[in-house]
Structures are given as structure tokens and as C-alpha cells.
Design a protein around this nucleic acid. Structure first.
Lengths: 385, 385
DNA sequence: CTGTTAGCGCATTCAG
DNA sequence: CTGAATGCGCTAACAG
């Protein structure tokens, strides 16, 4: 059904071994022979059979990138950067040959642990060379133990595993299953498991943001957290609370107003309405991400509140549209980290010491935050229930 | 390095063939045997070797989804829907077994023909079961001929090919290369090439939108087209011009104000400034997509123009954030079409008659369009050059 | 119902 | 430098 190595060999008047050698460029071949082979390849429009090749040398050239939400630019940006880095020939492009370029593929998991595991299984089947898991995950001990187990096994089998924007795996701990005799040459030592982690400093970023709000003079700050039970949500919330309790702005006795919602704009809109209903005196709202912040801002404006004159609003991530909206937020170098993850996945770059690196988040102050009004803002009733 | 079928067979006390049979569930196996095998599989945590399997039956369970921009929700939404449809067991899930679930992977091409071709090569190598190409492409005869050639070859080799939100392939035409003897059993007849197309009615949508503007009374309508040389850009622009020239609103002698820009929000912001500079009397701006429209709106507001009181603004696509922004736009059922494409790719659904289906675009009127002001809007100077 | 036997297309020893 | 031979892990005929 498709041209094979043998046909090329026949056309070039050589053996399959020779063709294989020129194609892989990892073995000396006479120039003349080489040319004839290349010509035959071109004429026949030969394309290597990936599966056969993968079978023969026990590994494919495919790298999986797992994302929680394909439609969210937060993931899109990282995935695109990682993919670009992976497609890149890399520094080791010594031979003129095209080299074994990898195919980076992204899979959406909808943030569900089950789908994440499923996806890993499918990639494992394909003997993927590496997998990159992006973004936070469900904040559950059993899930993370299962996932860690699985990831460690893959790493031990030679698949490179990189966590990107996700906390490190929990320690091997607990029921460390029997070693099934199979004990191949343990891969790169280093971090104990071969899994490398590029973690975001979500706590630090959120803390810095809330501190900024406190410094401006805000004392009653609402927080729109993301969906409950996710690591990113929790870490950012922790940072927020730490700022509240640690800084000068001890906000009295009232518990800090917090509402959970989704990570999308519509959720932010809804969440802001709840928050205002429950805690009317707010002069600022910090959100778990930019989309939520923008939704909140829309809700505020609808209620007749000006941003930032009456109420300040801030987000997290600094996605492209946030700059355009002049949103105060916390910048995460998504593109850079994605590229880094990609390079790690294909071995173009060495992992950080200890296998874990924490990526700093940087406060970006723009136009949606300002000192609170001297008199509490006037609030009109909602248009509807 | 990994558990193989043979090991499972040994553990279960059966032959490899039997194990293969229970795993594929496509052949009768005694209940007792079946159980033993399944147990062995579980105990050994066996995972099929994809490449080996693909090699043995000349096709893998992988489906490629090509998108122009991973970070753009326009593609994200379609890709996510397609992926979901592909992961779905489908209507033919007769056996309780997990069945041959497909792995849908998305690859970003940055809209570049070269990368698109590269990506197809890599997928071809993997013997992908199907590929879905989403979104418009470069509007060049040579590129589309090359791509068509390639796609037809893949289709002939048994790969299912579906075009999603992209115009149909040009006819086999011109230099229809010699048939290299290889003439496998021609796939599904129908459209001649086996390539199925789900096309968006970009012209019709754009036309309807501009007609809406004309009906409101606008006579001087600016158009923010997307990047030059792309099919989507051209089709939408054509629809706009058709409305202008065909309808009641013959806009006098002046050529319609059109500016090209990128597909992102920042481009829309920039483009709107250009447009206003070149054609000051505008009372409405139609944009190639929602992101551009929102960028334009930001530029207008910055200039002190109210939307829609002074100037109307409209987009295209109806992405989620547009509803929240109350943007008048043209709705494309991205999720639905993506799902459809996914089902076509895995054969869960039959292709449309003739292999081509045009998906209607629907005008969605919201709050950013209104009749033009009775007196031309007052325009203040830009803050900077 | 189940075991045996061939390849699938390629990379790689091992000889020349 | 090159060719012949072997096996990767699995599926698909064929026998039993």
C-alpha cells in the first residue's frame, strides 16, 4: 500500500541496510551510493514507516503534551511553545540530514484525572519518547499517587516526563509495588525518578498581588478562586491568604470573602455577583486568573461601579488579551516555560539541579487597580434577580 | 523493557494468539480462558505495543488534528470537540471491551503551508488513521495544489481526510502525476478523492452581517480584514463587498475602506486606528473575527467614540468571550462542526453527499451595533502619533 | 474454541 | 564501505 525500504533499495541497486543507513545518517556510506539512494527515495516519494521503525528500535519519535483545556490560551501558549521547541532540530543538528525530528502532539484532558490517565495509556502504547503534563491537577492524594506511580513507571521505561506548571510528584511513598524483576538500566539518575518539574510560583504571585492591593490601601478584598479541589486554585488562594494575614493589612475580624467558580470569564462574571452580594463593602477583587477577572470587571461595570475608581480588579497569568484590557495581573512566562519544557522533553537541555525548578511570577501593575475611594462606592441594585 | 504479549500468554498458560484475541475482542474466546488472560494482563500491567500492532495490521489508532494556532480558541474549540468525538467509543461499541479507542492528537502549524506539510509527513509516518485539517489556509494555487496532491495520496492510501472550516480541495487538475502502478482498492467513492469537506459559509455570513449594518442605516462601513492571502480572509471580505455592492446601500463613489491586519486583538486595535485615519467618516466597523472587533472597539473607545452610539462594531465567529462582551457577530457552530469532523474521521458517521457540506453562519445581533448617529461623531485626536 | 506459523517494515548485528 | 540474516511485538490466516 505504500513504498517500502525494500523497493527503494531495489531501485537504487543496493541493499535495504544501505538505504537504512543513509536515511539515518548514523553510519558511513560512500558518496555515490548515498546519492543514488537519495534519488530513489525522492523518485518513489518514500516515507519511513513510523511503526515499523519504532518497533525495530523500541521507541517512537512522538512527544505527547497534555493540557487541561484546549480552548484556553493559557494552555495553548505553553503547548505552542513546547511544540515549536520540539519540532526544532536543536543544537545537535550536526549532520546535514533532517535528523530524527520529533512529532509533538497535544491532547486535551478536560482536567479530568481519568482522561489524563487514559491519555497516558494511549501515549504509552505508542511508546512516546516523552510526555509533558501542563497545568495544575486535581488536588487529591489518591489521584496524585496513582498518577505519580504511572509517571514514574514510564520514566523508568525510558519515556522522558516533564511537569510544566504543575507541582512536583509526591514522594514515591506508601505501597511501592514489587519490582517485577524487570530492571532495565536505570535512566538518568538525578532526581530519583527521572521526572522533571517546572513549577509555577503560584503562591508567591498571588501573595505579591494581594500585597499590592493592601499597599494601595484596600482592606476589604474579595477573592474569586478557581474551581475547588485543584492545585492551582489552592496555591493561589494560599498566597492570597498569606498576604492578608501576614502583612500590615490585617483585615479585622471578618473572614476574607472568597468565592469559588470556574476558570472562565462567565464564571468570573457570576462569581463577582455572588461576592458582592455576600460582601457588599469590597473595594477590590482579586481573581484566580485573567478571564475570571475580566468577567468580574464586566459584572462590576454592569452594576454601575467604575474600575478602578470604585473597585479595583486584578487577574493572574497575563494572557495576551489582558494587556489590551490594561488589567493588573501577575505575569507567568508561559511561552518561555513551554519552550523550556519542550527542550527538556527532547533532551536539548539539561534538567535543573534536583529535577525541580520554580518559575517566578511577576506582578504587572496596569490600570485596573488604584487606591480605594475615600467614601464607599454607591451600589445600585442588580438589574435582575 | 516492557511486558510483552508472550509474557502474558505464558502467565495465563495460553498462546499469544489467544491473548491477542481477548484483547481485541473480535473473536470468540471461552469465558474461563478470557478471565485468566485478563487477570494476567492486569497483574503484569500489560500495555499493548502500539507500533508493533500498527505494523502488524498496517494502521495505527492515531488521528491527527491540524490547527493554525494552538492559542486561539477558534481552533481550540473545534479541536476539543473533535477530540471528544474521536475518543468516544461510538455507536459501534457492541462488545463490553474497551474497543480500539483512537488517540486524537492536535498539531499546531502556525498557518504555514510548510509546517502543514511537515506535520502531514510526520503523521503519515505514523500511519495515522485519519487527519483533520481545521481553519483556512494560504490562498495560493501552488500551495493548494501541492497540499491537495498530498492529501489525495493519503486518502488513497487509506487515511481518512477531513477538511474542517476550510474550502474544498481544488480539482485533481493540471499535472496529475503518473499513477505509479500502485492502485489500491479505491476507497469510498462519492467525492472522487475520499476527502470530505466541512466548509464554513464565510461569504454568506459576512454578507449577512454587512447587510445588517446597511439596514441599520450605515453607509460608510470600514472593514478590518484578516491577514492577506488567506482563504478565510478573502471569503469574508468577498461577502462584505457583495453586500455593499448588491444591496440598497450603494455607498457612493468612494472605495470601501478596508484594512488588513492579523487575526488577534492587538491587530484589531492597530487596524482600527489606521482605518479611522484613512476614512474618518466611518459609522461602523466590521471585522474579520471577534478578537479583531474587540481590539477595534478598544481603539474607538480610546478615541472617545462610544460603541454603538457613535460607531457600531461587529465581529465574526462568536467565540465565548464575545457573548460576554455583547458583541454583534456571526455565529459559527464550531463545537458542532468539530464534533462532526471527529465522527467523520473515525467513521462513526457517513460523509455528506458529494463529500462537501457547507455550514451556515448565523447573524447574532447584540449590543455593539445600532443605527448611526444623526450627526457625524466628534472625533478627538489620537493621544500619540 | 485454541495453538502454530508467517510475515508486517525496519535497524542492526555479523560477515565479507 | 556494503550485503545477508535476524528479530522487535503483534495480528491473521491456517490448522487442529
Amino acid at each position: 500500500m505504500a513504498v517500502t525500504l525494500a523497493e527503494v533499495a531495489a531501485r537504487a541497486g543496493v541493499s535495504t541496510a544501505t538505504v537504512s543507513r543513509v536515511l539515518n545518517g548514523n553510519y558511513p556510506v560512500a558518496e555515490g551510493t548515498r546519492e543514488r539512494v537519495l534519488r530513489a527515495v525522492a523518485e518513489l516519494e518514500y516515507v519511513v514507516n513510523g511503526p515499523a521503525s519504532a518497533l525495530a528500535n523500541a521507541s517512537s519519535d512522538l512527544v505527547g503534551i497534555l493540557v487541561n483545556d484546549l480552548a484556553d490560551p493559557f494552555f495553548g501558549i505553553m503547548a505552542a511553545a513546547a511544540q515549536r521547541a520540539i519540532g526544532d532540530p536543536g543544537p545537535s543538528a550536526r549532520h546535514g540530514g533532517p535528523g530524527p525530528r520529533k512529532l509533538a502532539v497535544v491532547c486535551g484532558t478536560e482536567g479530568s484525572p481519568e482522561q489524563e490517565l487514559d491519555c497516558l495509556t494511549l501515549l504509552r502504547r505508542q511508546r512516546a519518547a516523552a510526555v509533558i503534563l501542563t497545568g495544575g491537577t486535581v488536588d487529591s492524594a489518591v489521584h496524585s499517587a496513582a498518577l505519580a506511580e504511572r509517571l514514574r513507571r514510564m520514566a523508568a521505561d525510558g519515556t522522558r516526563v516533564v511537569l510544566c506548571g504543575r507541582p512536583p510528584l509526591p514522594p514515591a511513598g506508601a505501597e511501592g509495588g514489587r519490582d517485577r524483576g524487570v530492571k532495565g538500566p536505570e535512566g538518568p539518575g538525578g532526581t530519583g525518578s527521572g521526572v522533571v518539574t517546572l513549577e509555577f510560583d503560584n503562591r508567591g504571585g498571588a501573595q505579591a498581588l494581594t500585597e499590592h492591593l493592601l499597599e494601595l490601601g484596600h482592606r476589604r478584598i474579595g477573592y474569586l478562586a478557581g474551581p475547588e479541589g485543584r492545585t492551582t486554585t489552592r496555591h493561589r488562594l494560599e498566597g492570597h491568604l498569606r498576604a492578608l494575614h501576614g502583612g500590615r493589612g490585617r483585615p479585622g475580624d471578618l473572614p476574607p470573602p472568597v468565592a469559588h467558580c470556574g476558570y472562565d470569564r462567565a464564571s468570573g462574571y457570576q462569581g463577582a455577583r455572588e461576592l458582592l452580594g455576600a460582601a457588599p463593602g469590597l473595594t477590590a477583587i482579586a481573581a484566580a486568573n485573567d478571564a475570571v477577572a475580566l468577567g468580574a470587571r464586566a459584572a462590576l461595570r454592569e452594576r454601575g461601579l467604575r474600575v478602578p475608581e470604585d473597585v479595583s480588579v486584578a487577574g493572574f497569568d497575563d494572557l495576551p488579551f489582558s494587556a489590551d484590557a490594561a488589567l493588573t495581573t501577575v505575569r507567568l512566562p508561559l511561552r518561555e516555560v513551554g519552550g523550556w519544557a519542550g527542550r527538556l522533553a527532547v533532551g536539548h537541555q539539561l534538567p535543573p539541579e534536583g529535577g525541580v525548578s520554580t518559575v517566578r511570577a511577576e506582578l504587572v501593575v496596569r490600570d485596573t487597580t488604584a487606591p480605594p475611594p475615600s467614601t464607599p462606592p454607591t451600589v445600585v441594585a442588580w438589574a435582575d434577580g
